[in-house]
Design a protein around this nucleic acid. Structure first.
Lengths: 183, 183
DNA sequence: CTATTTGCAAATCGTTTGCTCTCGC
DNA sequence: GCGAGAGCAAACGATTTGCAAATAG
């Protein structure tokens, strides 16, 4: 059974498909379906650089990821993708996103709720603060903490490879700054 | 979806060993099976304080958790429990451990590998360094990092509720200090 | 006595995989 | 043309849950 039960509601999904009655798989995969994609985005370029085949699905997923200002999970990615092309399978999103991660093009996080969320691998490292009330995710960076982590690992006889730092917090009533990237 | 309509044959599949099945379960639950438990441990005392019923299974799980020097996952806990009493169900371990967590008696972690690992809630907060080669888990504490986390949250307009800090590292060839609590 | 808890098996739920058909290069 | 990819459904693995029997208090 496909995750979250509902099988893709073929036609009827709001979105680009003018010819949604033509529900052939061939159509879904044909490049025409992806014609509306914008010019090459960063992720697409990285895929090319890694020698990944640029299928319409991948270009679409790459675009959705490039456009994302938040940290969507796979289901949410699929939802956005399906908006543009209703026949893309959830499994394809899973496979693509896994591939992108193994190529170092996107980063996977697993915040409180358990399931995997993705963001494109940023040039600059950062950690996350999760707003416990809204679920919003705010990115931050702190050089001192980074340095301390290295030092702790070294003192324990290790070389730090990577780390995970997540702050779970609630807005302070006084000065609630409700900016930050939501997720 | 509740297609569980077919009444669960329960312990009485016709023709099968109804009686021996009953006996077995009765034996498994009877307090005799748990007679070998040592005197009250800390977790057991906390259970009592929280008004949890002290069944043999819980006392056994409490003891295994109390004795654990590492961060076992549910399956591992079950393995250890079954060593002492072979009829304790995995589901019981899941339920117990979940209950213990909601009562604040144990802490749940989810390191790299995905599944939940438990340790008894310690009086003193600590974070974890995970040895990427052996999977060992080393606990550490750093007041400065704690302070910085508070400060970061405050600066972003939040009050820190909890955090997760995990360092993933590899032993340094020069001075590998193989102390620390392994997991 | 009765509200909780257990054992068991089936159900969930996010994620992966086998198979076949398709398409990028 | 061929091998990497996509669609689909079924498999998976950790965890949860419905139910009836058993039990702690």
């Amino acid at each position: 059974m496909t995750a979250r039960g509902t099988k893709h509601s073929g036609p009827g999904t709001p979105g680009a498909s003018i010819e949604s009655n033509r529900k052939t798989r061939a159509w879904a995969r044909g490049s025409r379906a992806f014609a509306a994609l914008s010019e090459t985005n960063r992720i697409e370029a990285q895929c090319r650089a890694k020698g990944m085949r640029l299928t319409g699905q991948r270009r679409l997923i790459a675009q959705v990821l490039s456009d994302a200002q938040d940290h969507p999970d796979v289901f949410e990615l699929h939802r956005r993708v399906v908006t543009q092309c209703p026949h893309v399978a959830l499994a394809t999103v899973y496979r693509t996103v896994r591939r992108l991660e193994s190529e170092g093009i996107v980063e996977r996080h697993e915040f409180r709720d358990g399931h995997a969320r993705y963001e494109r691998a940023s040039k600059t490292h950062h950690d996350h603060l999760i707003d416990l009330e809204t679920g919003a995710v705010i990115e931050f960076r702190n050089a001192e903490i980074e340095r301390l982590q290295e030092e702790i690992a070294r003192r324990l006889g290790y070389r730090l490879v990577r780390h995970r730092l997540e702050l779970y917090a609630v807005p302070r009533p006084a000065s609630r700054r409700s900016d930050g990237n939501r997720s």
